[in-house]
């Protein structure tokens, strides 16, 4: 059975698909977008998050302990009286994650909704997600992806999912590389497959001031995607706080 690493499971998320959604944030991303609003999703390995606002500086976490799970972090995770420390990145077997998600079925059945895989870049852990989906009990599944994945993985995902939210951030290859660290040729190819797949999908462009929101970029994207369903998302200003939480 495969294992995956998840940095958050958030309930009642917005912008993540139809109805009441549960979004599973998969840890690890090949891109390094300068505006990333989920910095704790970048690295593939678990990281320590620290809620500064709650901390009273009691120093309990600095005392030596012999818990196995504290070792990588150099702090004790099991003493903070105010719960300031959490590890972003929990290992799940596909069975455990599926059984957790299947518990939401009662709610999804009541009014519609489903699970959305996001990240990080969920396609980095596609084989794991595919195994999870096979164990789900008829739940609507969406994904939010950068589209940056080898074609065979992308195809397999599109075929298995109910709705695909895919980013096209920058059309110009050079600019894409500069601002995300990755080439966009694979993304463009994947889009061409997606468009012909017959699956419901939405293309998204985060509007980043002076980077993606230029007239030139938006019209190039428009020309490329044609009449595909396209959402332009306003910049997420909340990212700053999360950077602060990474130790």
């Amino acid at each position: 059975m495969r294992e995956g690493i998840v940095f958050n499971i958030e309930e009642l998320t917005v912008h993540d698909g139809d109805g009441v959604r549960v979004t599973v944030f998969m840890k690890g991303c090949p891109m390094r977008c300068s505006w990333c609003h989920n910095p704790e999703g970048l690295k593939a390995q678990p990281e320590l998050l620290y809620k500064r606002a709650r901390c009273v500086g009691c120093g309990e976490c600095q005392k030596k302990c012999d818990h196995e799970d504290c070792k990588p972090f150099g702090r004790c995770l099991h003493v903070c009286p105010y719960d300031c420390l959490t590890v972003a990145g929990e290992r799940y077997t596909s069975e455990r994650l599926a059984s957790k998600l299947n518990k939401y079925k009662r709610i999804f059945d009541a009014c519609g909704g489903g699970v959305t895989f996001s990240g990080g870049e969920p396609l980095m852990q596609w084989e794991f997600i595919a195994e999870v989906i096979d164990r789900l009990d008829g739940i609507n599944i969406a994904i939010e992806t950068s589209g940056y994945a080898p074609m065979h993985i992308f195809k397999s995902a599109v075929d298995k999912l109910d709705h695909i939210y895919m980013d096209i951030k920058l059309f110009d290859a050079e600019a894409h590389k500069r601002h995300t660290g990755c080439d966009n040729a694979m993304i463009k190819e994947n889009f061409l497959y997606l468009r012909l797949s017959g699956k419901p999908f939405t293309i998204r462009t985060p509007l980043i001031s002076g980077i993606t929101d230029t007239e030139e970029n938006l019209s190039a994207i428009k020309e490329f995607i044609g009449d595909a369903h396209w959402e332009k998302l306003p910049e997420n200003k909340l990212a700053g706080a999360k950077y602060d939480m990474l130790i």
Partner: peptide
């Protein structure tokens, strides 16, 4: 109160309440 900035938040929360009632 930040949750309301998303345009689909009214619909989400209405469905959330309705689910609670249906359950």
């Amino acid at each position: 109160s930040g949750i309301w900035s998303a345009e689909d938040s009214i619909e989400k929360f209405s469905k959330f309440i309705k689910s609670y009632i249906a359950m």
